[in-house]
Computed example of a mutant assay.
Amino acid sequence: MFDRVRNVSGSRTPVRPGDPTGWSGVRGKRVLVTGGTRGLGEQIVRLLAAEGARVATCARGAGDLAALAASLDSPLFTRALDVTEPERLEEFVAAMANRFGGLDGVVACAGGSRGGRFEETDAEDWAATWEVNVGHAARLVRAAVPHLRAAGGGSVVVISSISGWKPGPPVQYGVAKSAQIQLAASLARELGPDGIRVNAVSPGSMLIPGRRWDRMRREDSEAYAGFVATELPSGAPVAPEEVARVVAFLLSDWSSGISGAHLPVDRAQNAPSPDGY
């Protein structure tokens, strides 16, 4: 009964030879990932490529894209762009679908925040934070829908954050990430008749070289130890590789029954920052 896996479009996907579980993974799938040169985005791209997917990614730095492509054993389709630039992201989606002959999945991973504490943050900071998170994700999905529909369905993964459902500063970031969770749930209902699944993944604090928690660990080890002891029951932040595996599962046919879900991947983390609730 596990010799093949039926996907949401009703077609059957051959499994890997010799795999008794029927797990076909993402082999052969055509997937676009935004923000794929650093941190979680990079780990998602590397895992998908290693698992046999045909991958495209974009980021602002052409040098970073070239270095990532050179480090992989399989071809990577790339383009240097800012996901908030009008029409640039949409053009990349069309180019990727044309290059690969279609599209099976997209991952909205690019994100970020501008501004500081609430009283220090102006309207431009709120608008920029919203656009790089919610605006970019919405435009990515809208551009991808015709291609996903033409393929008989597909999977969309929106990378939100623990900050989207557990309060902590900066507030403009938390509000945008919360909206991404709602976006995924609403689009899952609207696009479900086309066989398109949409889910949100919320990583907890991740230990990424050069980023906030890594800097705290190196520069203020006592504060970092206190944060881990108070907020992280497992004794360590979640690793980007752990989150990437969840994303790969959601892109695979084995997750065909999951849509409109919000999946925290945070090792039961409490507050998203040392500030607590």
Results as ranks from 00 to 15, higher is better:
residue 258 I to T: 14
residue 79 R to D: 06
residue 134 V to P: 09
residue 119 E to V: 15
residue 135 G to W: 08
residue 99 R to L: 08
residue 105 G to P: 14
residue 222 E to T: 12
residue 137 A to V: 05
residue 6 R to I: 15
residue 220 D to N: 12
residue 9 S to W: 12
residue 48 L to C: 08
residue 98 N to G: 15
residue 152 G to F: 09
residue 35 G to C: 05
residue 163 S to L: 08
residue 142 R to S: 10
residue 66 A to C: 09
residue 274 P to R: 04
residue 187 L to R: 01
residue 150 A to Q: 12
residue 268 A to W: 12
residue 247 V to I: 11
residue 259 S to K: 01
residue 219 E to T: 11
residue 239 A to W: 06
residue 86 P to M: 06
residue 53 A to H: 05
residue 194 D to P: 02
residue 5 V to Q: 10
residue 260 G to T: 09
residue 101 G to R: 14
residue 197 R to H: 10
residue 67 A to P: 05
residue 110 A to G: 03
residue 8 V to D: 08
residue 81 L to D: 00
residue 136 H to E: 05
residue 153 G to A: 14
residue 154 G to M: 08
residue 113 S to C: 13
residue 169 P to I: 12
residue 22 G to V: 11
residue 163 S to H: 10
residue 222 E to P: 03
residue 166 K to Q: 09
residue 116 G to P: 13
residue 113 S to K: 02
residue 115 G to E: 07
residue 183 L to R: 05
residue 57 T to S: 09
residue 90 E to L: 08
residue 62 A to L: 10
residue 76 L to A: 05
residue 30 R to P: 15
residue 151 A to Q: 10
residue 258 I to H: 02
residue 155 S to I: 11
residue 194 D to W: 10
residue 43 Q to Y: 01
residue 252 S to M: 05
residue 272 P to A: 04
residue 228 V to F: 00
residue 246 V to F: 04
residue 91 E to Q: 10
residue 36 G to S: 07
residue 110 A to M: 01
residue 49 A to C: 14
residue 103 L to E: 00
residue 170 P to Y: 08
residue 168 G to D: 06
residue 75 P to C: 12
residue 50 A to I: 04
residue 117 R to N: 15
residue 59 A to Q: 03
residue 115 G to N: 09
residue 155 S to H: 07
residue 194 D to S: 14
residue 251 L to M: 10
residue 43 Q to P: 03
residue 16 R to E: 11
residue 120 E to Q: 15
residue 162 I to M: 06
residue 191 L to W: 00
residue 17 P to E: 10
residue 170 P to D: 07
residue 205 S to F: 02
residue 163 S to Y: 08
residue 41 G to M: 02
residue 146 P to R: 03
residue 85 E to L: 08
residue 257 G to E: 12
residue 84 T to K: 04
residue 13 T to G: 12
residue 250 L to M: 07
residue 7 N to L: 15
residue 247 V to M: 02
residue 238 V to Q: 01
residue 4 R to K: 14
residue 220 D to V: 05
residue 263 L to C: 10
residue 240 P to W: 00
